[in-house]
């Protein structure tokens, strides 16, 4: 048990990632309000991005902008840039899908007059 706590403290970001992922999944599954479900989905997406950026971190390294352009590059002096590129794309696509889902939510509200799943299911029967 002590060993488990120690490994968790050495990787606090991973623990935060697990907590955020599970909170998001739980909210997406159990809340009956559509906006609340989307907030849960947003938490899931950002937690995955947190995991990706954490994987690329190096202790003692600086941001991936080259300081010295004359000499050869030390690979341990800069953090890993590849996760950053992937997450830039992921954040933009995440907000694009969020926009489409919010558009769907307002279309549903205009047709059924409610954001509550139970009300909507009653109206569709």
């Amino acid at each position: 048990m002590n060993e488990l706590i120690e490994t968790a403290l050495q990787r606090p970001n991973i623990v935060a990632f697990v907590v955020l992922l599970l909170v998001g999944l739980y909210i997406t599954l159990t809340r009956h309000n559509l906006i609340k479900k989307l907030i849960g989905l947003y938490l899931v997406q950002t937690s995955v991005i947190l995991f990706l950026v954490t994987v690329g971190a190096k202790s003692g390294a600086t941001v991936p902008v080259l300081l010295d352009t004359a000499s050869a590059v030390e690979q341990d002096a800069y953090v890993n840039p590849l996760p950053h590129v992937l997450t830039l794309t992921a954040i933009v696509v995440q907000v694009a899908t969020l926009g489409v889902s919010l558009g769907l939510v307002s279309a549903i509200y205009r047709k059924y007059g409610s954001l509550d799943e139970d009300h909507i299911l009653e109206r569709t029967r």
Binding site: E3, L4, T7, A8, Q10, R11, P12, N13, I14, V15, V18, T54, V55, G56, A57, K58, S59, G60, A61, Q75, D76, N80, L82, P83
Partner: peptide
């Protein structure tokens, strides 16, 4: 959380991704 112990330490310059 169990799988966490198999990941490289946080900030390890020799992690496979880096």
């Amino acid at each position: 959380l169990y799988a966490t112990s198999d990941l490289p330490r946080f900030g390890d310059p020799q992690s496979p991704a880096s």
